[in-house]
Simulated assay, not measured.
Amino acid sequence: MNPHRVHRAASMADVARRAGVSAQTVSRVVNDRPHVDAATRARVLEALEALGYRRNPAAVSLATGSYRTIGVVASTLTAHGPVLALDGMTEEVARHGYSLALCPLRAPTVAAVSEAVASLVGSGVDAVVLGVETELMQAMPRPLVPGLPVVVMDGEGSTEEPAADSDPAPGLLAAMAHLADLGHRQLRHLAGPSDSATARRRRELWSTFCTERGLDVVEPLVTDWSAASGFSAGTALLRTDPDVTAVVAANDQVALGFVRACADAGVRVPDDVSVVGFDDVEYADVAVPRLSTVRHDLREVGRRAVRQLLHDLGVLPEAPQWPVPSEFVLRESTAPPATRPRQQWSNSYPGTPRGSSSRSR
């Protein structure tokens, strides 16, 4: 025997010979089609198993017109939200016998998105999830690819592409009502990126709530969703805005970055400043203090995005409901504001604590 001989994969003809049937009958069994009696089907299945037959994906796609693959264009996988949504997509495609093809963007530009979509289509996908910002989508030519179902993961969508997102309103309004009911009058917002529809929607909800409650609407500081940017924005906020008693952050990472800035400045959470995040990431429940936040199920957003595309492809009879609702989760990072005047916070920052207590109670 030649030790370098390459083992040849079993063909449909091999299976047909072993089972004593035609290749057409094997094809019907492999593709789970009717008009094969039970005994013949069992014989073919035994032959498939014995020979270790594996379907050729290219041949299957030619025969069925489907690659059974969903493409994903991801602008970032460093933020917590996109990673959870991708996890939900992976779970859902597996449930329906599909797979994912991931194409990260080198840069968030029209050319990069067009190149990513073309690459996915060239490799063989049935539909695409676009994890890009709404402003970028608005600059894209239409249609992206004629006949290609698409969903967008940034909260606005369009007549061309439905949006796969959660509804921040129920949870975020409940969180801000909680702060206002505690007695907070100086609510500030650490906002997400200005080019994000998701961040813009949360900012609008915060602004509208403050206006309706007669609270000051102070221009938010903008972050990039990261804990580092929350720390930087928090540093600036604590330096320049000593009146703040509560902060609503763009997400939990920004909130925890702000909590770190407070700790470095000797500002106590929640005694001096209450903090609310958004997302309810795993470590929000083990932070010190445990973080009050808005929970929305990003894995479910990813699952529904896949179900939306499978509906558009005619695989599933019903489209999912949009958006996925949110809810407020109360933990330890919120409390009533101080009832007695506090000392003016020091501007010596960073590295110098603001005293043993930044506010007397």
Rank of each mutant, 00 (worst) to 15 (best):
G20A: 02
A38F: 08
S75I: 07
V29S: 09
Q24K: 13
Q24F: 09
V73E: 06
A9L: 11
H4T: 12
V83Y: 03
R18K: 03
A50P: 01
V30E: 07
R55Q: 15
V83T: 14
R41Y: 10
V26A: 03
D14P: 01
L62S: 03
S66N: 04
M1E: 15
V73I: 04
A9T: 12
N56I: 14
S75H: 11
V60M: 12
R33W: 10
V36A: 07
P3S: 00
R43P: 07
V73T: 05
A13K: 03
V72S: 04
V60S: 11
S66Y: 03
V72G: 06
R54A: 11
M1S: 15
L62T: 05
V72R: 05
V44H: 06
G52F: 01
R41D: 13
T69C: 15
H4V: 08
P34N: 05
V72T: 07
A16M: 04
L77H: 03
R54P: 07
V83L: 09
V60Y: 05
P3N: 00
Y53Q: 01
R54N: 06
A13N: 04
D37G: 04
D37P: 04
V73P: 11
N31L: 11
G52Q: 02
A10M: 05
V44L: 09
Q24G: 12
T40P: 02
V72Y: 07
T64K: 01
N56W: 12
A42G: 06
P34R: 04
A13Y: 05
P57W: 02
L51R: 01
T78D: 12
S75T: 12
V21D: 02
S11T: 15
G65F: 01
S75E: 13
S61V: 07
V26W: 07
H7V: 15
M12E: 00
H35R: 09
P82I: 10
L51H: 01
I70L: 14
A10S: 10
V30H: 07
Q24A: 15
R33L: 15
D14Q: 01
R68V: 07
N31F: 11
S61N: 08
D32V: 11
S22A: 00
L48F: 08
T25K: 02
A16P: 05
S66V: 10
T40Q: 08
M12W: 00
A23E: 02
G65T: 03
R43G: 04
A79T: 14
Y53K: 02
V83Q: 10
T25M: 10
R55S: 13
E46D: 12
R68T: 09
R41K: 13
V6Q: 13
T40R: 13
V26C: 04
L51S: 01
A39V: 13
A23H: 00
S61Y: 08
A85I: 14
A79R: 13
D14N: 03
V73Q: 05
D32I: 09
A74M: 14
P34W: 04
R68G: 03
T69F: 08
H4S: 13
N31D: 12
V29I: 10
A74F: 11
R41L: 08
V6K: 14
Y67N: 15
A59T: 08
R68K: 14
R41T: 12
A79Y: 10
D32W: 05
R55F: 06
P3K: 00
G65N: 03
S61C: 06
G71T: 11
P82M: 09
T76L: 11
Y53V: 01
A85M: 15
V21Q: 01
T76P: 03
E49W: 01
V44Y: 10
H80E: 12
M1C: 13
V36H: 10
T40D: 05
A23F: 01
